[in-house]
Design a protein around this nucleic acid. Sequence first.
DNA 1: ACAATTGTACAGGATCGATGTACAAACATC
DNA 2: GATGTTTGTACATCGATCCTGTACAATTGT
Lengths: 129, 129
Amino acid sequence: MLRIDLASRVPVYEQIANGLRAELVSRKFSPGEKLPTVRTLAINLGVHHNTVAEAYRQLANEGWLELKRHHGAIVRERNHPEAGPDTMERFTRPLRELVAKGLADGLSPSSLAREMIETARGLEERTAP
Amino acid sequence: MLRIDLASRVPVYEQIANGLRAELVSRKFSPGEKLPTVRTLAINLGVHHNTVAEAYRQLANEGWLELKRHHGAIVRERNHPEAGPDTMERFTRPLRELVAKGLADGLSPSSLAREMIETARGLEERTAP
DNA sequence: ACAATTGTACAGGATCGATGTACAAACATC
DNA sequence: GATGTTTGTACATCGATCCTGTACAATTGT
C-alpha cells in the first residue's frame, strides 16, 4: 500500500502520484479498473481529499487515468509516448544522485548494485515474457 | 559541470548538493582539495551565493566537506557510516518511482535496464579494484 | 594599515503546498 | 419522482520554504 512521508520535503500529492504511477507502470491495475475515490484514499493516507485530487489530476494529465465526475478515477489503456532527446538524461542524473545518497547513507556498493540489477532484471522480464 | 534547473521544483541548493555529492562519491575530488568559493560557484551557476553556501553546509553536515572561514570548502576524507534499518527502503522506493517515471516518459525498459546495470557495474568496480 | 575576500546571519518577498469550505452534478434509496 | 448522499472541483487562506538583498566579522594580500 501507499505510504506517505509527511516529513519529506517532496509534496504529498507528488508522493501519491509517484507511488500510483509505479503501480500503474507495473500493471498492478488493469484498464477499466476504478481507483478509490479521492476521499477514501485521502482518509486512508491521512491527508486532505484535495491533495489526492491533485495527484489524480497529474496522472490524468499524463494519460494514466480518466477522471469523470461521479465515476471515480478509471485506469486507462496507455500507449508509450515518444521519448524526447533529454529524456534519458532526466533518468541517469537522478539515478547517479540517488546512488550517491545511498552511499552517503552507508549502503554498500554491492547492495546498491544488486538492487539495481534486480530491478533491471524485472524490467527485462516484462519486455520479453 | 553542474547544471541547475531553475524550473525544477527541487530546491536549487539541494540540486547543487546532490550534484556535488555525486561527484564526491565518485572520487572526482581528492581529500584536501578545495572547492570553488561560494561566490564564484554562485556566479558560475547564476544563483545567489547564499544558495551555494546552503548546499555546502548540507554537505559539511554529512561529513563531506570542512568549512573554514576564508579557507573555502575543503574536501574531507570520509569513512562510511552505519546504514540504518530503513536506509535500503529509502533507496529502493525512489528507484522504483524513478523507473516508473522513465517508462512513463517513453524510455524503453531495455534502455533503463542497461543504464542501471552499467551503473551497478561501475559501482562494483570501485568495490574490488 | 588598508582594501579585498570569504563564509555567515538575518530580514523580506515571492511562491507553493495542504487544508477548510462551498458547490454542481450524478447516484441511491425510498 | 423527490430527497439526501456521494463525488470531483473551485477558490480563499494559512503556513512553510526558498531565494535573494544586505550587512557583518574575520582572515588574507599588498
